[in-house]
Design a protein around this nucleic acid. Structure first.
Lengths: 342, 342
DNA sequence: TTGAATTATGTTAGCGCAAACATATTTGTT
DNA sequence: AACAAATATGTTTGCGCTAACATAATTCAA
């Protein structure tokens, strides 16, 4: 037995049942302070609404109000603990303010990112939270969004001075700190497994790396920049390539993030190198896996949950305030020393 | 300088610009096979649409078509790797079919779950994927959803015979297998850290545990069922409580999931017990942390990504097929032996 | 050449709701 | 009693779009 799917109950149906106008139903179910409605009528309406199983149609409401109570959240991946943690933060604030999250995963592919953004615009989300994909090509779509007046807040991976607020971490300082730590430990020949040039995180972390070198009188050696990416496999492949070239091994490697560091460790171990005896390696992000003794990665903690909180707070403020200024917030990182640098 | 937020461009604006009717614009931008439109007109329209920065309004479309191309995904948590992995699977299928995901996190709270489901109904999502929260109270809302004709598919934590399809893992067999493994290793006094009674996963895993005992001629001892939950802290608290009661320590503990097992390990270690020397412990789920040597948890692998794939496939089939039958799918688990059971 | 088919466009209505503007009905005030 | 204010409800319109049904312009066969 299959029951024919019932059509959704509308205000008109409730009105018809009671022989009143649809507008009265609307007023009863969505009381505005300035509206008048008699308690008896309201009660009747609520009872019938309940009896018929009325569920308000947010689509229709959105069309009228030009407001959807949805925000688009675009992330590159869910594979490591970082973005799920950010999303938890976003969800906290969004839920408190009755916004729903539309989740898009780009898998680091700019094509997917562009498609997601287009769709979110068409869905008339009230705002967008975006962490760029690793393969960004250009910023024209970002500009279009910003210019259209749709609030956009970058998080983690951002573009400054585009008119969108940015929430991230103090990447440069974090990288500088961890490099200084390595140098203090006596390391001089330090390589950097870097992320894609187009991204703020990559550049800032690299900047911190260079600054630490400079401050400590170590000459920057371009050949020690190993181009990589954010995924474990990026680190693995890049390290493998580097080792194949037969260059002299560095004393330390500063990776652009944990996943990449873990990949690099795998490549190094495959070649029989021991960490931290033969060389030390550090990451960035404090992935949930970093603390385990098989990896035990010295890294820089980035407050993922707080980034989510802050980014969504700024977004929602932007949504509900007429002319809110763009603001950039960079949360503090902290050094987490573990055994990969003994 | 702050530019006034431009109103969104509509088809009517394009039509006005060209002195044609809005309907012609609609036809040009959303070609239906049966429609006629001259190539020149279409070209003009596309050009103007582009010039004005037209973005189709899916809200309006949804209202007309009674179809939103959204699916609601309700999960209890994002803290462990399991649900993010499921979501990756869901996202894969959803994206392929041009559906967007509306993500709701309940934090194991039934109140949040009910609110999320209500909202999703109001948003007129085309279907819902749900993993119940740990604190389910009753099924009336599920029934209401199903009766309303809104496709609902349970995943991971499900309720059979409610009219909704269910996608899960072979929990009973998995639990049985891991218990048999322990028994084969000579363990006889085996405790079970169990999940909430209201949930399928809990019951099935407990059923598998009991079956293994029975098949091996071990009498079931009710006092060895330790009521717990799915979160790390649940396992920690329950274990602590159990230890405080001063009962004789079991030789092995079968936990309802990895997080709970990890929590229990913490409690045990705090009391100076050594794993696996003093007692062995096993989990369920194969969380991304389970493989690390600090934990090294023998567990049952549950194919999270595949559950996401299967559940969303079934949901979308249900959405697009008139009278699709409910179907229940239980994916195979596999034993993962690590050092927590030496 | 004529009218039927084909092609190209226009008009109207309605999806479900709420803003804006009526119109009743009741209450309170003097 | 008379009128304004307060209260309660109704009507119309439009959000942006598409389905359904016109109508106009063109093509083509006989």
């Amino acid at each position: 037995m299959t029951t024919a799917p019932k059509k959704n109950v509308t205000m008109q149906m409730i009105a018809d049942e009671l022989g009143i106008s649809q507008m009265t139903v609307s007023r009863a179910l969505n009381p505005k302070s300035k509206d008048y409605i008699s308690p008896e009528t309201r009660e009747k309406i609520v009872r019938v609404a309940d009896k018929l199983g009325y569920t308000p149609n947010l689509i229709a409401k959105s069309l009228v109000n030009n407001k959807t109570y949805t925000i688009g959240v675009v992330v590159p991946d869910l594979s490591y603990s970082f973005y799920p943690d950010v999303i938890k933060g976003i969800n906290k604030i969004a839920t408190d303010q009755d916004y729903q999250i539309i989740l898009c995963i780009t898998y680091e592919d700019f094509k997917n990112e562009e498609k997601a953004l287009q769709t979110l615009m068409s869905m008339r989300v009230d705002g967008i939270l975006l962490a760029q994909s690793q393969s960004v090509k250009d910023f024209s779509l970002y500009k279009k969004i910003i210019q259209s007046g749709l609030p956009l807040v970058f998080f983690d991976r951002y573009v400054l001075n585009l008119g969108a607020s940015c929430v991230g971490s103090q990447d440069e300082q974090g990288a500088e700190e961890i490099c200084n730590y390595l140098i203090k430990k006596g390391k001089k020949r330090i390589a950097h497994l870097s992320g894609p040039d187009a991204l703020s995180v990559s550049l800032n972390r690299q900047k911190g790396y260079k600054k630490a070198l400079k401050d400590n009188g170590i000459r920057f050696d371009k050949s020690l920049i190993i181009p990589s990416g954010f995924r474990e496999d990026d680190g693995y492949q890049s390290m493998k390539q580097f080792l194949k070239e037969g260059k002299k091994l560095p004393e330390a490697i500063v990776s652009v993030n944990d996943a990449s560091a873990i990949g690099a460790m795998t490549a190094l171990k495959e070649q029989g190198y021991k960490i931290p005896e033969d060389l030390v390696i550090v990451g960035f992000s404090d992935d949930s896996r970093a603390k385990f003794s098989d990896i035990n990665l010295t890294t820089v903690n980035v407050p993922a949950y707080e980034i989510g909180i802050k980014a969504s707070e700024i977004l929602i403020k932007k949504i509900s305030t007429e002319n809110s200024e763009t603001e950039n917030v960079f949360l503090e990182t902290s050094l987490v020393i573990r055994n990969s640098t003994f």
